[in-house]
Amino acid sequence: MKLTTLFSEPYRKIAKDGLWDNNVVLTQNLALCPLLAVTGTATNGLGMGLATMVVMVASNAAVSFNRHLIPAEIRIPIFVLLIAALVTLVDLFLNAWMHELHKVLGLFIPLIVTNCVILGRAEAFASKQPLMPSMWDGFMMSVGFTLAMVVLGAAREISGAGTLFANASVLLGESFKFMELTIIPEYKGFLLMALPPGGFIMLGFMVAAKRLLDKKAAEKQTPGAVIDKLQLAEQDS
């Protein structure tokens, strides 16, 4: 893929959708099960996000590459089988090379198969688009998902334990030791933020912040631009 291609309008729109406008977590409110369960720390969120990224990019590529060979009547079972095979490979890789991270993420690695985001992008985008846009869509959607997981995990970890990327060297490897930080020294911790209810609370703040930023951005638009957008929305409906 040429660098200039990434700055073309279709690719910029795909990137903007994945990172912000159609963010998996903040806009679609999908994949909340792993999001709330494993984001007790930023390290766990990063590990889960990267594992999901590999599966999503590879599944989009496989579906797009074979889209003319897959019968429409059985496309969903085939998509699930493709995703399941990729998740199995990722699970085996983590178990072999990042065993500590594999033990922390546990059951949620196999459950990537049921992540409706991956299946949804395969059905809605990759099955209808060429290879490179499909891979770019999978990458940007998973980057948006990973960023949301890391931000949520970081907020919960700082407020819950006063640290950031704790045990990164143990879970991800010694090369990640530089990421381990103590943000609040001698902090006794706030247990609620380390538990699932803390995840719900922090996620609510994140969703509210995104909607507030979207509202402020819309208010800065010129009246003519707002009218044009409303007219386009009415035509689409």
Rank of each mutant, 00 (worst) to 15 (best):
A148K: 02
M149C: 10
M149R: 00
V150M: 00
V151G: 03
L152H: 07
A154L: 09
A154Q: 04
A154S: 10
A154M: 12
A155C: 10
A155V: 04
R156A: 11
E157D: 11
E157M: 09
I158A: 05
I158R: 04
G160V: 03
G160R: 08
A161N: 07
A161H: 04
G162E: 10
T163N: 03
T163K: 01
L164I: 12
L164A: 15
L164M: 14
F165K: 04
A166G: 07
N167H: 07
A168K: 00
A168L: 01
S169R: 00
V170L: 08
V170K: 01
V170D: 01
L171E: 01
L172H: 02
G173H: 06
G173Y: 11
E174R: 14
E174G: 05
E174A: 08
S175Y: 06
S175T: 03
S175G: 02
F176Q: 00
K177D: 10
K177V: 02
K177I: 02
K177T: 03
F178S: 09
F178W: 14
F178G: 07
M179L: 15
E180C: 09
E180K: 06
L181R: 08
L181D: 08
T182P: 13
T182E: 15
I183L: 05
I184P: 06
I184M: 14
I184A: 08
E186K: 14
E186A: 13
Y187T: 10
Y187N: 07
G189W: 13
F190N: 15
L191P: 13
L191I: 09
L192T: 11
L192M: 13
M193E: 05
M193C: 13
A194N: 14
A194W: 08
L195G: 09
L195V: 04
P196S: 14
P196L: 15
P197M: 11
P197E: 07
P197L: 11
G198E: 02
